[in-house]
């Protein structure tokens, strides 16, 4: 028992701290995460498409910006499937915030449609 504990401490498996670089194991990083939007690829057409497919209504249009509410996003991936060139997996699972407004992100729209 002591051997395995010491070995785990040496290898950084046993720790009394949160992993400094964030979760690295596959069972933690392979989880679905909210979308990340590629700059310059989100035009009005893409925006209206992802707003239409979002089942949890975490996306909506506000003037010249697409608004993403991470608090409502369920990381289902519907927007990624609807616009694969403009939407990626963000890989961010540590989303806790001190203010609700910090979870609402504005993605500026590209002016011309593609």
């Amino acid at each position: 028992m002591a051997f395995w504990t010491l070995r785990g401490l040496l290898r950084g498996v046993v720790t009394t701290r949160y992993p400094a670089a964030g979760p690295r194991d596959q069972w933690a990083t392979a989880l679905p995460t909210p979308p990340r939007f590629v700059e310059g690829h989100v035009g009005p057409d893409v925006a209206s498409r992802v707003v239409a497919v979002c089942p949890s209504r975490a996306l909506w249009l506000d003037g010249d910006a697409l608004v993403l509410d991470l608090g409502a996003c369920t990381a289902c991936g519907a927007c990624r499937r609807a616009a694969p060139h403009a939407v990626r997996e963000s890989g961010v699972s540590e989303l806790a915030a001190l203010r609700r407004a910090d979870l609402v992100k504005r993605i500026p729209l590209r002016a011309s449609a593609r």
Binding site: V38, E39, L70, V92, E94, A97, L103, K105, I107
Partner: peptide
């Protein structure tokens, strides 16, 4: 720990 999501704009460069 700090909030990591505060500064993240959730956009990526192409």
């Amino acid at each position: 720990l700090g909030a990591k999501v505060t500064e993240d704009p959730f956009t990526a460069t192409a």
